[in-house]
Design a protein around this nucleic acid. Structure first.
Lengths: 226, 226
DNA sequence: CATTGATCGATACACTGTATCGTCCGATAC
DNA sequence: GTATCGGACGATACAGTGTATCGATCAATG
């Protein structure tokens, strides 16, 4: 068939310029908007105007993409302060803030060892600021704060999601939980728990986090400045 | 077609007796053996000699199955002790032991609010044992210990998996990580971190966990017995 | 200009959670 | 003892997943 009869092939779309940063940014946008389960290689690829398989030139597996996302988030964690205590508190609080900005982080933090450049940079910043501390104490101390933060924000985000799932705000959530707990407590099997839940003052999320962190920092202080 | 010509239908297999406990036990066996991602409704059903859809008479979604698994695991957590400090330490350590027995728990702990009977029973046991403590302090204190434990075991299990993924034991893993860290540290971008990693004494997992827990309990003690 | 080597993405595979719905059985009502 | 009903059961189907494979296409090289 002669050229004249053959239709011109459609304009080949200019291949979208791609790199890890663009991929990670697209994935993070998806996760921020609709949670981690909205991040699929197909959706990420579609958001970039690209075929799913294209991504495999930049990553070997989805897990690696998640690692990259976490490391990108670590870049937002900026501990600062003059004393070791300020630095550790800042480490905890800026981590918490970052998780609030990217709730999916709660699902990933602590899930795999973080060895990416931003995670290391965060570690460097913290360790450098702790130069007055006995070298043997640095890792356990930072590790303990990290552990507390990871667990605390997980619980916090879990609660927040549960609230959201019922479409309630914090006050109404407790009211909605009420019936179940009321019925359960009515069985009389959890008397001590019932008393505490009913009678104790309920702290909000900020205060709860701060209080636990204070416990930990107080304990560290006792050991560090021995 | 007359009966005589029609073949007799095959013996209908006696329907396997089923209940949540059996389902959960099967799921836990799968998870213990091959991790959480080995738990699919199809595999659980197959293990029980049953069609996948059968499970939906007992649970509404896979999430609920995971909740049931977690609650079953909570049954193994048995905090005990005479003083509040013993109880909290025991809470932390028996939680950690349970996670060691069921590594998949590390992926689930803190992921959703736990309101199952065994979780509540564990809470009851702890709260009851803390009866000397100011009622307003009970929840924050238990919450802080829980948060620390959740984060700590997550990190611990994450590290263990990373070791296992390379097929190394603890010593060789550090040697295997060495090259990457060595090269990274050689860039000079993380001098403080490099110093600590190279020069500090490295605690094993038990000691690391215990040390962080001691920090926290010390801090709590300072506040509680005021 | 021909060849090569890399890049790309369409297709395919095995697997997931779960909605739908016809079939079948056992218990109930007459 | 028979007819009806309700619910248990699971086969099938669907939309979506991560990723292996491999033919087509392109730019750079000889």
């Amino acid at each position: 068939m002669l050229v004249w009869e053959r239709p011109e092939p459609p304009d080949r779309p200019v291949p979208a310029p791609l790199n890890r940063e663009r991929i990670v940014r697209a994935a993070i946008e998806l996760a921020d908007a609709d949670g981690l389960e909205a991040v699929s290689l197909r959706k990420v690829a579609t958001a970039l105007g690209v075929g799913p398989m294209r991504l495999y030139s930049y990553i070997d597996s989805k897990e690696e993409l998640l690692d990259l996302m976490v490391d990108a988030a670590y870049a937002e964690i900026r501990p600062a302060g003059d004393t070791w205590r300020e630095v550790l508190r800042s480490l905890a609080e800026s981590t918490r803030q970052t998780v609030h900005a990217h709730e999916w982080l709660a699902d990933l933090l602590g899930g795999r060892p973080q060895l990416g450049p931003h995670a290391l940079a965060r570690g460097e910043a913290v360790v450098a600021a702790l130069d007055g501390v006995d070298v043997d104490d640095v890792m356990p101390v930072v590790g303990a704060v990290d552990a507390y933060v990871i667990g605390a924000v997980r619980r916090e985000i879990a609660g927040r999601r549960a609230e959201r799932a019922t479409g309630m705000d914090e006050r109404r959530w407790q009211a909605a939980l009420g019936p179940y707990l009321e019925r359960t407590f009515a069985t009389g099997r959890f008397p001590a728990l019932a008393t505490v839940v009913r009678d104790a003052e309920h702290l909000d999320a900020d205060a709860t986090f701060a209080m636990g962190l204070d416990f930990l920092l107080d304990g560290i202080e006792a050991r560090i400045s021995r």
